[in-house]
């Protein structure tokens, strides 16, 4: 049900961006899915497929969901490393004082669209 709300927002944003670009038809939408959000990709894909019919421009669009790894920046050594699993720590020096810098967002990244010739 969480994924349904997210699908609604993705479709709204994609449709708005398509309208802004003067698109007649959206062919592909790329969505970045931060691992930290624990989004069920299969469920999200299902809702996107079922609900895209509500938006004529998106009715045939393919949605690519790309999982984004979690990256942390160490407040001790300053290195940025990819975080594997839970138990947050710096991949370089092992310190636990780290800040998440990527992998915590769900983002409509870009789209392939068709526009009419003018």
């Amino acid at each position: 049900m969480h994924e349904m709300s997210l699908a609604e927002e993705i479709l709204r944003i994609a449709d708005e961006a398509a309208a802004g670009a003067g698109a007649r038809e959206v062919q592909r939408v790329r969505v970045g899915v931060g691992w930290l959000l624990q989004v069920e990709a299969e469920s999200l894909a299902f809702y996107l497929g079922a609900m895209r019919q509500d938006y004529p421009r998106l009715a045939a669009a393919a949605f690519t969901l790309e999982e984004e790894a979690v990256r942390v920046r160490c407040r001790v050594c300053g290195q940025e490393t990819v975080q594997e699993g839970w138990g947050f720590s710096c991949g370089a020096c092992g310190a636990r004082d780290v800040a998440v810098v990527a992998g915590d967002r769900l983002e409509v990244q870009d789209m392939e669209v068709l526009t009419d010739d003018v």
Partner: peptide, 11 residues
């Protein structure tokens, strides 16, 4: 036209 549209908007 086939266009690539950058969006980069938080869901």
């Amino acid at each position: 036209h086939h266009q690539h549209v950058a969006v980069h908007r938080n869901v």
